[in-house]
């Protein structure tokens, strides 16, 4: 009849146990490497193939390229913007990127701002978003011909 008294034991037991709260601004959750956080962009790797723009389900990526100064057949990136108001961090852009130029970092908390317009991030901000993540820190730009392959 008094099984409800057992419940008091449970709560009292937790009373003395170690607390599991993470004191957020002071200590942060360490996200696993694969965590799909906020993007990072490597301008030198980009070959302006437009794959990320095409796959993006929310159409938040816009980019423009210009001619490569030495090799007129190639293109280099000129502007690259992600509008984080609409970005759903689905990771499809990094998945299709043939050269790993757009990658996702494990950072999750540098997007808060007081105005909407600040969510519109340009190439400079994205290149400097320097956190660890599921990507190579630096390395040679992979050869062409891997277009459409999984990274």
């Amino acid at each position: 009849m008094f099984r409800l008294l057992k419940g008091f034991g449970v709560t009292l037991n937790y009373f003395r146990k170690k607390k599991i709260t993470i004191q957020y601004p002071d200590e942060k959750v360490v996200m696993p490497e694969r965590f799909r956080g906020i993007h990072r962009f490597f301008p030198d790797k980009c070959i302006v193939c437009n794959m990320c723009v095409n796959i993006c389900p929310t159409d938040v990526i816009t980019l423009t390229g210009k001619k490569h100064p030495e090799n007129p057949k190639k293109k280099i990136i000129d502007t690259y913007n992600i509008d984080f108001q609409g970005c759903i961090l689905c990771d499809l852009c990094t998945e299709v990127c043939p050269t790993d130029a757009i990658v996702m970092t494990a950072r999750y908390d540098n997007l808060s701002s007081y105005t909407r317009s600040e969510h519109f991030k340009d190439i400079e901000w994205l290149s400097n978003n320097h956190v660890y993540g599921n990507y190579e820190e630096s390395g040679p730009v992979p050869e062409m011909g891997e277009r459409g392959e999984r990274k």
């Binding site: 009292l12 937790y14 009373f15 003395r16 146990k17 170690k18 599991i20 004191q23």
Partner: peptide
């Protein structure tokens, strides 16, 4: 008290 019982601080 309630916090501690709920494994919070």
């Amino acid at each position: 008290v309630i916090g501690w019982m709920q494994i919070r601080n």
